[in-house]
Design a binder for these strands. Structure first.
Lengths: 140, 140
DNA sequence: GTGGCTGCAAATCATTTGCATATAC
DNA sequence: GTATATGCAAATGATTTGCAGCCAC
């Protein structure tokens, strides 16, 4: 079922290559905000000639066309997200998971009222997720 | 007037070294969110034997003790901020400035209500600042 | 006096670049 | 057929690490 990804690429008039399809498919099926290396290592299994450069190039062009988005909550490595609508992220320092946070901030209007033009908003929350908090409680 | 910085370090029981004082002073007097390299290059003028490793080490320990905070709005380089209270940042893609944004988001409580423990919040806004918007208007 | 700090050089790691070949259209 | 994408290797740049000597306390 590559149709879905072919369609996405076609809509943006992007060339349809197997690598781009595989990367899109991977991101769609792994909503865990994977790193470039995770994507590369996983896809290399079924396509040993895959180059990391191609992964970088493809992610960049997909991002430029707003098909995917990148997040950088650690500061040292980019992660990619198939979900392209505005939302935020929470990183748990216990389990390492990055969880989607779907809240809006009504006060953003204050920034707009000062005359700034906002094109992107990234909200990064860090702490301990609810599951890890539960585990800690149970242990006592 | 090093008293201010000596006091800050003493309060956290950190060793008082000339390098730490100079770094703190630089950050206090340059609220432009400088990079490690900017801090290093500037301080090296008056202290040629200064090492970039020391700048990294000092910033790290100051950050650990919550005397300063780091921001990473670009993804490729850390910047440092003398202001240690919670606030957000706006990066202008025209002039490159990083501007402090002092808004609170009341909806954060929704995240807390889901059981997550939030320890840090970073809000990164990107776009065009009010000054650059004005300039564009004037040009027509 | 001693443990932590500084400074130097080398290592690491994500990302970028240059370029020859391959492929989508 | 041609412009664009891929893949490889080398380069880059921020940050980290190892370690010897130095200095704050």
């Amino acid at each position: 079922m590559f149709e879905k990804y072919v369609k996405i690429l076609k809509e943006k008039s992007l060339k349809i290559t197997p690598q781009r399809i595989e990367i899109l498919k991977y991101l769609d099926e792994h909503r865990t905000h994977p790193t470039v290396d995770e994507i590369y290592s996983e896809l290399k299994v079924n396509n040993p000639s895959l180059s990391k450069t191609t992964v970088y190039n493809s992610l960049e062009i997909l991002k430029e066309h707003k098909i995917i988005q990148s997040i950088n909550i650690n500061g040292n490595e980019s992660r990619y997200d198939f979900k392209n609508t505005m939302h935020h992220h929470f990183k748990c320092r216990k389990c390492g998971r990055i969880i989607d946070i779907d809240i809006a901030c009504p006060n953003i209007n204050k920034v707009l009222s000062e005359g700034h033009k906002i094109e992107e908003v990234h909200g990064y929350f860090k702490g301990i997720c609810s599951e890890c908090m539960e585990k800690e409680k149970r242990r006592g």
